[in-house]
């Protein structure tokens, strides 16, 4: 039977009383990484959280900083035969689009956002944490073992996408100016480079089927390495699309197709549109996640 993005790895609890791993509490990233390995290989490679942690350069947690970074985990997974791709900052739109294409994500989050919800796996934890966030949205939180009343137990439920986005955006990172959240609409983590075939691919509408409801005429230029668009004239909030630095977009149009899906269409200076830049929200896709992903390939 073909393996698809509906493949679900075994849930791995980090709790030492369940995992049997003495450093379980310090190793959420290793447990989320183990689930990523299983998903990426359709179960062919299925390490434990302990095995992932032991493959890192910090098998014994540093008492001053016992957790792990994404690169420590991605290096460990490579040793175990699984290639994943780390990212220091990615736009949520691109994450949404890549999940739609079958990539699973090990997502860095700030637990202070999840802690007060019914999904909490530790009502006393506020810090940086890591979750397995598959295309299905059925998040695996290594803390969600239902060990007592008030602790959520993983059972394949889809987490609200806006909860995931807010938790990811609150992840605390270090800038040269000091610590701060990575920012709403962004995330740090890694994704499965290889992945099962997507269950379904949402096709963009034909141009003729699109009803453009609003158009913003400005020039947008990508700066930096992470596809942040700056506008002319300046706009307070940059727009996160991933594209090569120097890429130019002259209009961003809101559109709605007959099925009620909403789209954002980016047009190049020569009037062409790259279908890869159509992004969607609508039935099954929450509003507010209409950020496009994909390369611009025809900028003059």
């Amino acid at each position: 039977m073909a393996c698809t993005s509906a493949f679900t790895p075994a849930f791995l609890a980090q709790n030492p009383a369940i995992s049997g791993y003495v450093y379980g509490w310090s190793s959420c990233a290793a447990f989320a990484g183990a689930e990523a390995a299983s998903y990426s290989s359709c179960g062919a490679i299925h390490p434990s959280g302990e095995q992932v942690r032991n493959a890192t350069n910090e098998p014994i947690p540093n008492p001053l900083s016992p957790g792990l970074t994404i690169t420590q985990v991605t290096d460990a997974l490579a040793k175990l035969g699984v290639t994943v791709t780390p990212f220091n900052r990615m736009g949520w739109s691109e994450i949404t689009a890549m999940r739609g294409a079958g990539h699973g994500f090990s997502l860095c989050v700030r637990y202070s956002v999840i802690r007060p919800t019914r999904f909490t796996g530790d009502p006393n934890f506020y810090g940086n944490h890591q979750l397995w966030y598959p295309p299905s949205g059925a998040t695996m939180d290594p803390l969600a073992d239902g060990r007592r009343a008030g602790i959520y137990r993983y059972h394949g439920e889809v987490y609200p996408d806006d909860l995931m986005e807010r938790a990811a955006g609150a992840f605390l990172v270090n800038y040269s100016s000091g610590p701060g959240p990575i920012g709403f609409g962004y995330a740090q983590g890694f994704y499965t480079t290889s992945h099962p075939a997507p269950v379904a691919v949402i096709e963009p509408p034909q141009e003729s089927a699109v009803r453009v409801t609003d158009t913003v005429h400005q020039q947008w230029t990508a700066v930096g390495t992470n596809g942040v668009l700056r506008t002319t004239p300046a706009r307070s909030a940059p727009i996160a699309y991933r594209m090569p630095a120097g890429s130019v977009v002259t209009s961003i149009a809101e559109a709605e197709d007959p099925a009620g899906n909403h789209w954002r269409l980016l047009t190049h200076p020569d009037g062409t549109r790259n279908p890869a830049w159509l992004l969607h929200y609508g039935p099954g896709i929450p509003r507010g996640h209409d950020w496009a992903a994909g390369p611009i390939t025809s900028v003059p």
């Binding site: 980090q14 709790n15 030492p16 009383a17 003495v22 379980g24 509490w25 310090s26 959420c28 990233a29 900083s65 016992p66 957790g67 792990l68 970074t69 994404i70 690169t71 420590q72 780390p86 220091n88 900052r89 736009g91 949520w92 860095c108 637990y111 530790d122 006393n124 934890f125 810090g127 940086n128 944490h129 890591q130 803390l143 060990r147 992840f171 605390l172 990172v173 270090n174 800038y175 040269s176 959240p181 990575i182 920012g183 709403f184 609409g185 962004y186 740090q188 609003d214 700066v223 930096g224 942040v228 909030a237 940059p238 727009i239 996160a240 809101e254 509003r287 507010g288 996640h289 209409d290």
Partner: peptide, 30 residues
């Protein structure tokens, strides 16, 4: 209409470490 990303520094942050939950959990067996 839509939710736009925060204004963030152009500087890309370095990978940050995770923290340690379970601090108030009972001690567990090996």
């Amino acid at each position: 209409m839509t939710t736009e990303p925060d204004d963030v520094p152009e500087e890309e942050p370095e990978p940050a470490k995770t923290d340690v939950p379970g601090q108030n959990e009972p001690e567990e067996a090996e």
